[in-house]
């Protein structure tokens, strides 16, 4: 996600990539600039860019212990709980990069040959029930996947009443400049390219 955000920023205009399927003629010149940029960035990265952490958990652990000063995440709301329980410094603040932030929604997929399709549908309904979504949001900082505008007024007020604390931006600011996920072809090309051009260099 970090590298894809940088790709968006390197492109300058997100609409050059967003929503279109993979195009080698667009990607290759862009990628060359992207790798050069990430190379130049290395002195500012953890361990001077000599190696990279292997998971989001590892990144957040480095932030918690003070080895790094900032990181990117898909779950800005979860930061609040980490600040409350003291894992993250109280001065932690979320911010949106100037290019915008890649965001998506959690999805559920039921395999075509699932043994208990009906039960899976019941579970899916339960997970997107407004009550469940409210608890995800209030207790875990996981943003609702449902359109709260379409809820009854009282339920909506409960969502509005959730306060994640000063470390997290309000939902409207977080979603003001949302970028869509890139086409799968781009995602794979970014991953393979980063491994070959940055990690293995």
């Amino acid at each position: 996600m970090v590298v894809r955000t940088f790709l968006y920023d390197t492109a300058g205009d997100p609409s050059a990539l967003a929503g279109s399927s993979f195009d080698d003629a667009t990607f290759t010149p862009l990628a060359d600039r992207l790798w050069a940029r990430l190379d130049a960035l290395e002195p500012a990265l953890w361990r001077g860019g000599e190696t990279y952490p292997t998971s989001q958990d590892a990144v957040e652990q480095l932030y918690a212990t003070g080895e790094i000063a900032a990181y990117l995440t898909y779950g800005p709301g979860t930061v609040a709980a980490r600040v409350t329980d003291g894992a993250f410094p109280a001065t932690t603040r979320t911010a949106v990069p100037s290019v915008g932030n890649i965001a998506n929604t959690s999805y559920l997929a039921i395999p075509a040959d699932a043994a208990d399709q009906a039960a899976a549908l019941v579970l899916a309904n339960l997970l997107q029930d407004p009550q469940t979504q409210l608890r995800f949001y209030a207790d875990g900082g996981i943003y609702p996947v449902i359109d709260t505008d379409r809820l009854p007024a009282q339920m909506r007020a409960e969502f509005d009443a959730v306060a994640l604390g000063p470390s997290v931006l309000p939902l409207d600011e977080l979603t003001a400049r949302v970028l869509p996920e890139l086409d799968n072809g781009y995602a794979t090309a970014v991953e393979d390219g980063w491994t070959a051009e940055v990690l293995q260099r």
Binding site: T51, Y52, T54, T195, L199, Q200
Partner: peptide
Amino acid sequence: PFLLGRPF
């Protein structure tokens, strides 16, 4: 090596 090593 997964926990203590490098990805590459």
